[in-house]
């Protein structure tokens, strides 16, 4: 049994079963039974997470992932852990988003903006197109403002999201909410109250992970200890993202980084990653979106043509990253 298949779990197997030829099927079914018997119901899925060659990873969530585009830290850590795997990363975090994908609704048409439900459909379409092998999911921050009363809705929404994502992707990894940091002119009583809620939402995410047998990464506890990782109390700084990358790699028992994270070559890789992610951002969330998808579509042909013209530049940038990683 090689490293990759050891990490396969029941929920992935359902899908892999369908994809693989019959000869593999019996072999895998045995594995299912073996692994199912190892699972405990009080902890989320454990054990190292491995990557096969050429996998595609999606980062999905709110501003936790969207802001990561600007510093490339998490992705650099991942790349340096698996430099030869040629992994493709797509960051589709969206500020203000929640498990219902409300922020992803399309541009307005007349007096109307896309309905919240449209956002969920658009996300499903995008996931179908991207065909990811793994999705890292970070939600809960925006939902947590509904306080205790919103916890069950969050659980339900998260489960629905996971069910949809599970139809397109074999491995879903949940990431907890982060605590708020003190300072930044924000009243202390507000921060205390928020942290109580954020902790509950982190726990709920964990419960969902246990129930659905997903991997879960707790960032709440480790980020509660020191108060120096955010830019505004709620969003991570570059240092914060580097720390988050370390914590994720540690939790998933990734191999050692190929080179030090602060090495010159790591900087080159990080810059290449940032550029690639910025290009991708303009590809899937182009400015003037109203002329690409919305009411003003008929007004501008160019608006609809240009975003697709970014794709060769993304591909070129991917090649640059691969080459940097191969020549470490």
């Amino acid at each position: 049994m090689d490293f990759e298949s050891a990490s396969l779990q029941t929920n992935e197997l359902r899908i892999y079963n369908m994809r693989l030829k019959c000869t593999h099927r019996i072999h895998l079914l045995v594995l299912v039974i073996l692994l199912a018997s190892c699972n405990s119901k009080s902890t989320p899925l454990q054990g190292p997470l491995g990557f096969k060659q050429n996998e595609k990873v999606i980062f999905l969530g709110n501003a936790f992932f969207e802001n990561a585009i600007a510093n490339g830290e998490i992705e650099t850590t991942f790349s340096l852990c698996f430099p030869k795997k040629n992994i493709t990363f797509r960051n589709i975090g969206w500020s203000g988003d929640n498990v219902y994908a409300h922020a992803r609704t399309r541009a307005r048409d007349g007096q109307r903006f896309g309905s919240p439900e449209e956002g969920f459909g658009i996300l499903a379409e995008q996931i179908t197109d991207l065909k990811p092998d793994k999705i890292f999911i970070a939600y809960g921050f925006n939902e947590s403002f509904d306080d205790d009363a919103g916890i069950e809705a969050y659980r339900k929404g998260l489960n629905r999201l996971l069910e949809m994502l599970g139809q397109h992707c074999p491995e879903l990894i949940l990431i907890s909410t982060l605590p708020m940091e003190k300072g930044f002119g924000i009243p202390e009583e507000h921060i205390e109250a928020r942290n109580k809620e954020l902790k509950k939402y982190a726990e709920t995410t964990k419960e969902v992970a246990v129930e659905g047998e997903y991997r879960f990464i707790d960032l709440f506890a480790p980020f509660s200890k020191v108060n120096k990782y955010t830019t505004n109390g709620v969003h991570l700084s570059s240092t914060g993202y580097r720390k988050a990358g370390d914590l994720i790699a540690e939790a998933l028992k990734f191999p050692q980084l190929a080179i030090k994270i602060d090495a010159k070559k790591a900087d080159d890789i990080r810059n290449a990653i940032i550029k690639k992610n910025t290009l991708f951002f303009h590809r899937w969330r182009p400015q003037n979106d109203a002329y690409v998808y919305g009411l003003r579509k008929h007004e501008q042909r160019i608006a609809q043509e240009e975003p697709a013209q970014i794709e060769p530049f993304i591909a070129k940038q991917e090649l640059a990253i691969t080459s940097l990683l191969e020549n470490l």
Binding site: A63, E66, N67, W94, S95, G96, A103, A107, R108, H235, R285, Q287, N288, D289, A290, Y291, G294, R296
Partner: peptide, 8 residues
Amino acid sequence: TGFGTEDT
């Protein structure tokens, strides 16, 4: 972050 950009 998160201000709309649908129309510049």
